[in-house]
Nucleic acid binder design. Structure first.
Lengths: 235, 235
DNA sequence: TATTTTTACTTGTCTATACAAGTTATAACG
DNA sequence: CGTTATAACTTGTATAGACAAGTAAAAATA
């Protein structure tokens, strides 16, 4: 079956605890030695788990002090979003599927290089419009290779995010990727979706996300209205 | 003095070797055990060095195979840039200092939160215009706290990048940060610098970079013409 | 010859331990 | 009381070794 390494199990536990508010923002996580005792692990293993949390921006470590819990960034899938209005609180997030997942061939001039197995298997294609605070914020087109994803095209992605579905049903998780970012004038059809004017500046992202499955990459193209919301990132 | 940890020394060595072309793109780095023997270290230490290289995108690791050397992304400071024209080769990079480093007070409504010590020390301020392939690509405004940087305001930053100067003269290196990204219409004064039309879409970045010096953060605001070049990033 | 098995290598995960270095509260001291 | 040492924590760095799991070439087999 799916035997997760120990450090990842601990990571998942701590991540869930932080996100669900077990630890308050600014408070300290149990020390590494305490976590060792609690979970029956040694310090290098615990540190490996904490490292992933640092990478996620969920904790910040300070030598001599401890691991400080940070406010998790508001995120949709792999995008972190910040409202320009300072009133944050609980955001109202919504996803509308404009094109349900369908299987089709990869386009001829697909903007990323594809491996042979990806090209042979065909692509699962879907389009979504994402709302924050009731307003449309970005529109995305997604391609993923049609490799070993039983019943995927019939799954509902309205409530759960694409990545959450891949994570929970197929044990696929993103472990990195690359992206190109540009500012462009919004084309007419997309402007209509985002309820902005044709020609208004929008963020245009092309991203390739690598997963824990070798050769299984997810490709997304995103048009993002950054007038009302901002893309926020850590590096 | 400056006693660098072993894993960082090895990282610096390998980084220099990769960037200077000792290892060809696609070739394999010496195996972890070989690196252990070569440098008199143990595997966890070597792995710690390799981890940083993975984070930089300079190598990709494959279990059972080895560490594959990747083409380093073209970067200016901490920005990776990709030409829209496929002709890459050796780029002609140039920096023009529009405002030499000067010491001044932090602005009242500075867009980031400042620590007390940062606010008290005042800011070093500089403006630059950066050229790629002979064309102006982005304009940036930088603020860094005036803490223990002897003779900084009289240094030339034309040839060496700001980060390279901080790295080599003051042992300050960036180890992370956060940024906000927006697409905006270019204001008139900046459009003139970038040789584009007022109102053309540009990328607008606000970033805060943390360093190895506790409480020493660098703040940049960037206007980037993404029509001719693209911001490229790994995550 | 073509296929399968073995072998030797690679990175991935994990244990156990030690000391260095930074932080903070307590205890000792003037 | 205020200041300085001390002690008890914390994370950072490093050693030494073990086994698991993936890759690829060599060896054995059909």
């Amino acid at each position: 079956m799916n035997t997760m390494p120990q450090y990842r199990k601990l990571y998942e536990i701590l991540r869930r605890h932080i996100l669900s508010g077990v630890y308050e923002e600014g408070s300290l996580l149990p020390s590494e030695n305490e976590l060792c005792a609690l979970h029956g692990l040694t310090r290098p293993t615990v540190r490996q788990a904490l490292e992933s949390l640092v990478k996620d921006g969920l904790i910040a470590k300070r030598q001599g002090k401890g691991s400080i819990v940070r406010k998790p960034p508001q995120s949709i899938g792999i995008l972190s979003i910040e409202g320009t209005a300072s009133a944050i609180g609980d955001k109202y997030l919504k996803t509308v599927i404009l094109q349900k997942p369908v299987i089709r061939k990869w386009e001829e001039n697909f903007p990323f290089e594809l491996s042979e197995i990806e090209r042979e298997s065909g692509a699962i294609y879907l389009e979504r419009l994402r709302y924050v605070d009731g307003k449309p914020v970005f529109y995305d087109i997604n391609h993923l290779p049609n490799i070993n994803l039983p019943r995927f095209t019939s799954r509902s992605l309205e409530n759960r995010s694409l990545f959450e579905t891949l994570r929970s049903h197929y044990q696929i998780r993103i472990n990195g990727g690359e992206q190109r970012i540009q500012a462009i004038r919004c084309p007419e059809d997309i402007a209509a979706l985002l309820k902005i004017k044709k020609g208004d500046p929008v963020l245009y992202l092309q991203r390739k996300m690598a997963t824990n499955r070798e050769g299984f990459n997810i490709y997304s193209v995103i048009w993002f209205n950054s007038a009302s919301h901002t893309i926020f990132g850590r590096f």
